[in-house]
Design a protein around this nucleic acid. Structure first.
Length: 278
DNA sequence: CAAACTACCTGACTGC
DNA sequence: TGCAGTCAGGTAGTTT
């Protein structure tokens, strides 16, 4: 599931392959690929040149040599692949962008998404951020991320810490996997109420979230080869470094006690009952 | 306004 | 072998 480290890995891969390229042909291939708020069909981007690829939290957008921007969200299963033009039928291909001019070395950027929770949109920029990303808070890697303000915001919430951590309008980038990992590292139970936690404890969760995502990004960054932009996040990191996510019944790497899984807010939460006592 | 809930989606897996 | 049921989960829209 693409969370911040996976989306940043995709952003870096895209940056390498599409910056400076022109979308010479654009095709939307599935009725739901276009976000309903898109101001135009994707095809209007034919002829646009990519200046940079930006990210906030789990949202990506392409700055173009035009006022409009192309926004992308990978949802649960979205992928971008850079491929040679003449490939056979691609399963779950939702949109394709031909890059540069036709020819033997021509490539295309494909948007592939099995579960169709991902989308693309043509959007306008408002203070440098697309309209569709305005409600998304800064992520912990943002230059202007305000740690103190985030602590205060979380502290005032009348809900449990894990829900606050997943709320993209407080701090963005964290999904279910890194939420569980951050809370384990900070030794805080996912169902702890925000108002019961000290500012130091909330600060610790935020710092651990940044730390675990930075480490995941390091691994993700090494796992893609030339033409393949890895977004499925299953390489390396998942197998080796997860302490609690998907580890129900396995020993806690810190204390050896069995990791537990509970259903909470319609999602699985994994934690160590000893290290993360309530 | 904030919190909680639900729809959206398809492939993999489980149990009978 | 088949089939129904369950699970995975990010976000937006709706309800409380």
């Amino acid at each position: 599931m693409p969370e911040l480290p996976e989306v940043e890995t995709v952003r870096r891969g895209l940056e390498r392959w599409v910056v400076g390229k022109k979308f010479s042909q654009v095709r939307a291939l599935h009725p739901r690929v276009l976000n309903p708020h898109s101001i135009a069909p994707l095809e209007v981007l034919e002829g646009a040149r990519v200046k940079s690829v930006e990210r906030r939290g789990k949202f990506l957008w392409f700055l173009l040599n035009r006022p409009e921007t192309l926004v992308a969200h990978l949802g649960m299963s979205g992928q971008f692949l850079i491929q040679p033009i003449a490939t056979g039928e691609v399963r779950h291909l939702r949109a394709s962008f031909m890059l540069g001019s036709w020819g033997r070395s021509a490539r295309q950027m494909q948007f592939i998404d099995q579960r169709t929770f991902g989308w693309l949109a043509v959007d306008q920029l408002q203070d440098g951020i697309p309209t569709l990303v305005q409600h998304i808070a800064r992520d912990p890697f943002d230059q202007e991320f305000n740690r103190k303000a985030i602590i205060a915001k979380i502290a005032s919430r009348k809900t449990q810490i894990k829900k606050a951590l997943l709320d993209q309008s407080i701090m963005s980038g964290v999904g279910n996997i890194y939420a569980d990992e951050s809370l384990w590292r900070a030794k805080i139970h996912p169902e702890s109420y925000c108002e019961e936690l000290s500012n130091a404890q909330i600060g610790r969760v935020i710092d651990k979230a940044r730390q675990v995502m930075a480490q995941a990004l390091e691994v993700g960054g090494t796992s893609f080869d030339d033409l393949y932009i890895n977004v499925n996040g299953e390489s390396g990191y998942f197998e080796r470094s997860l302490a609690v996510y998907g580890q129900e019944g396995e020993p806690c790497p810190r204390c050896g006690r069995e990791i537990r899984r509970i259903i909470f807010a319609n999602r699985s939460s994994h934690f160590c009952p000893t290290c993360q006592a309530r």
